[in-house]
Design a protein around this nucleic acid. Structure first.
Lengths: 149, 149
DNA sequence: CGCTAGGTGCAAATGATTTTCACATCAATG
DNA sequence: CATTGATGTGAAAATCATTTGCACCTAGCG
């Protein structure tokens, strides 16, 4: 419950000019600590009393991703979900399809495997996307609204 | 160069009623032998002289995927790409971002890793998506039109 | 303090996918 | 073989997430 980190994240500098909107978006994004969609973040901001245009949210997240400060995955519905990435390395997550709970997993083996493939194949700039999804213990126990599909 | 497999794939049975359109879509889909988007398949069919409504192509592919006969990945642009899956197991591919060339890779390690994660996490119905992309030797050598993103 | 490149927001444009709905077809039946 | 109710089909309209056009701001420098 310490500082609410309301101060402008210096990450703003990495993506251009420093503006109020960017600070707010960035702060909320970092605070989200997990995967968020642009729309969700936009709603969150509105709810927080610091509304920012949807386009701006999109623009900010896109820039962050381009700058390598955010990872990007796809919702089964096709929505882009962003996750703040503090460091240069990336991680992989196991996401609950019911409640959205997500936890990082040990991806060492994957990295090694991917590197090996890259070597053997002769392909350059090999990148990988790994998404794990399932039903977390809680949801598995209490099938919520059990809305499937 | 034997039979052109123009006969109706019996897979049709798995997704409902057997109609001309489904046979054609399915045949083309199987013949595509790799990832195809609904739109591409639709164009292909038109070019082949067996036009089928775009909606029908979408419906057919979606059903196949639901029935577990097709794998699904996302284009960086957000387009859904389907790949016919003959058996119950799935494979992972390394796709060239320049020319689309794709080759299966040995995914044994991944399967094991994913299974391990599933075990440890307590999550149920754990599924995984793995996408590897890079630039194939040919494209790396001759940077084509070198249009990036 | 004034300037200007870069930002911002809204609304309209895109693009892929889905749905609606009137019409055509399948496949079991009489 | 004709009937018929369930399904499937296609064209166009509807959705949805995301992008873009454009007129209006503003950070940050001189």
């Amino acid at each position: 419950m310490a500082r609410t980190r309301q101060r402008t994240p210096n990450e703003v500098a990495l993506i251009g000019r420093h503006t109020q909107q960017r600070s707010v978006v960035l702060a909320a994004f970092i605070r989200a600590d997990g995967f968020v969609g642009a729309q969700a973040l936009h709603s969150q901001l509105a709810a927080d009393g610091t509304p920012v245009g949807l386009s701006t949210v999109y623009r900010t997240l896109t820039r962050l991703a381009d700058a390598g400060r955010a990872d990007l995955v796809r919702d089964p519905g096709g929505e882009r979900l962003f996750r703040y990435r503090p460091g240069p390395d990336h991680r992989h997550y196991l996401i609950c399809t019911e409640c959205g709970l997500n936890r990082p997993v040990d991806s060492g083996p994957i990295e090694d495997w991917a590197d090996g493939i890259a070597q053997d194949s002769g392909f350059a700039h090999v990148r990988h996307t790994v998404e794990l999804s399932g039903v977390c213990p809680d949801c598995g126990r209490a099938p919520a609204t059990a809305e499937r599909r």
